[in-house]
Nucleic acid binder design. Sequence first.
DNA 1: GACGCTATCGCCCGAAAGAGCTATACCCCT
DNA 2: AGGGGTATAGCTCTTTCGGGCGATAGCGTC
Lengths: 212, 212
Amino acid sequence: MAQSHSIRILLVDDHSVVRMGLAAVLSLDEELTVVAEAEDGTQALEKFRAECPDVTLMDVRMPGIGGLEALRSIRAASPAACVLMLTTSELDEDVQRAIAAGAAGYLQKSVTREELVRAIRHVHAGNRYMPEAMQRRLAQLAKRKHVSSREIEVLDGMRRGLSNRDIALALSISEHTVKAHVKAILQKLESADRAEAVARGFEQGLLRVDGQ
Amino acid sequence: MAQSHSIRILLVDDHSVVRMGLAAVLSLDEELTVVAEAEDGTQALEKFRAECPDVTLMDVRMPGIGGLEALRSIRAASPAACVLMLTTSELDEDVQRAIAAGAAGYLQKSVTREELVRAIRHVHAGNRYMPEAMQRRLAQLAKRKHVSSREIEVLDGMRRGLSNRDIALALSISEHTVKAHVKAILQKLESADRAEAVARGFEQGLLRVDGQ
DNA sequence: GACGCTATCGCCCGAAAGAGCTATACCCCT
DNA sequence: AGGGGTATAGCTCTTTCGGGCGATAGCGTC
């Protein structure tokens, strides 16, 4: 079998157009072979198990089980899995999470053919791949204060227009505690009031349009 | 020339991967010819002028001059232009604006090859093309109360954490007027307070992560 | 074990927000 | 000419918010 020096690739993206684009780009290189495609996280895990690809190219944002969860599942099933994450938007939060979850690299979809191929070879060789723009973003991200999960629950209450008291009721804690959380949130997000905090939440990917 | 029955197409998308995917999809059909590609709004207008394509496939969201403005420019230059807008997210606000700006149709990037080709033929024949999902979205959208541009300015002030007085100063109007606007915004967006209003603003595409 | 971070709970207080009410002037469309 | 939407402006009142000042307890790390 002459496949030993061929890089076997799994494509995961909910947009068929993007899958076709990636397939077209990759087919130009003899060494790269797309062995399977998936259009959501569940399929991705199935195909991964079935094909054991050398490299997985996966969109971060997908309906249903998102790319991040799929990444975690894959890495759980096969810790050595080599997964390159793709993103349209550069929603910061995701980059960090993906790295933490063991992504081998992170790319924007605006990537050129050359860089994409380079990235695939790079991660296949066992390295990490992170474009400069992303690195800068990560650096910025690292500067940001970490917002705890409890605080995000409170922030989500604000986003839904709840008063401190209502949030307290919803979370079964005292209003004073909620105020303490709100205060911490405003500090961490450098916001003057809850409205700005909610805006920052969206900007930083802590809150999502599609309802978390 | 046997080109009379060939549909000449201009592709506009900032993601090269997507352009290649579209090109790959379209090349499967003999009748469809991609005559040019552009990766931003400015280029789109240039290429449009140079090639006078029968159909333009354009992404809504692009860096710099967005797809909507490009659409307007093209329609201004050539009112009969046939432009199909493509979108990743289904950010509601844009659909409506694109229709208003004279788009011949609206597609999501998750579209199948068949539907894409059908859509192109359809609009080339002079019809409008709007998938059911989009139509439903438009219907929902129509129910929403229209937020005036002045109100969006005020909403943007809230998003930046400004108090009513600060917004008043920034817009050179009285604080009372700002309060009136805020009240109108809360009503229209069915929000309990400014925090929820800001959240709705993001959800409805009135506010954007990338800074409007 | 000490430190840091988090979650929890407490009080006081001034400033801001939002509800309720009214009113004028403008523009566009019918 | 009239009606609907918008922008502007004013008033009062109650609620909420956010700042400032605390405190205790748990959990993980160094």
